[in-house]
């Protein structure tokens, strides 16, 4: 390993990390929104939309992100929808993550006893208020572990972004190897930078899980 090479590459990796983080977290944010909307539709048993949600979840859970990104980036322009690579990345990740989040939220929602909702309704809350103030917080607590796992999974999935010419970590590493053949240095840096990105999320996740546990059991 050559130290100078590593020092020389660092700025490029930092640049790539920032881009990966930016698009990754935008995707995670979208995944949250999509997942929540889907969970709400399923929970409220809204007709028609329910079927749409099921279709969406199955479509995105059962196709690779790579294919989804290809579709967004290369197929949509053929019907006149042209999206920037960054937007494709966030949206693709958001759509994939939404499907996973929806399933995670669902299992969380199912863990909340039905009488909790009745209890809230009997206090005059509307079904939406009961969902917002009583059911969702409990479902969230129950699904924290799953949510954290999804976030990590999604941030790792950013490594396929290079196919739509986004200069993420993976792209940068491959590019540098192709040009200068410093394989060992490049790949070591790649591992280190993924760890820099993901370890804090894992740690934060376990802290969050512990903090939320106080309210988990016993009504």
């Amino acid at each position: 390993m050559e130290k100078e090479v590593i020092l020389q590459y660092l700025p490029m990796y930092r640049e790539a990390l920032l881009l990966t983080l930016k698009i990754g977290w935008q995707g995670v944010f979208l995944a949250f929104i999509f997942g929540l909307l889907c969970a709400l539709v399923r929970h409220m048993k809204i007709p028609v939309l329910r079927g749409v949600v099921t279709g969406y979840i199955e479509l995105f859970r059962n196709t690779p992100l790579l294919v989804q990104l290809f579709f967004l980036y290369f197929a949509l322009p053929k019907i006149g929808i042209r999206l920037s690579p960054e937007f494709c990345g966030s949206l693709g990740l958001g759509l994939l993550g939404g499907a996973y989040m929806a399933e995670t939220f669902r299992s969380g929602l199912e863990s909340v006893a039905p009488i909790q909702e009745e209890s809230a309704l009997s206090l005059g809350m509307t079904p939406l208020q009961a969902f917002r103030h009583v059911i969702l917080p409990q479902a969230f607590t129950a699904s924290v572990a799953g949510i954290v796992a999804n976030v990590i999974f999604l941030l790792k999935e950013t490594s396929v972004f290079s196919v739509i010419s986004l200069m993420d970590l993976m792209f940068t590493a491959k590019d540098l190897i192709g040009m200068y053949a410093k394989t060992m240095e490049c790949l070591t840096l790649l591992v280190v930078f993924y760890l820099i990105m993901l370890l804090p999320v894992s740690l934060l996740g376990s802290v969050l899980e512990r903090r939320l546990r106080h309210a988990e059991f016993g009504t």
Partner: peptide
């Protein structure tokens, strides 16, 4: 919902909100 505001109900299993 309006009617339920005027009718209080207490259940066998208390059903307090555990996160509050």
């Amino acid at each position: 919902s309006r009617m339920r505001q005027r009718i209080g109900m207490v259940f066998q299993s208390y059903d307090l909100f555990p996160h509050k």
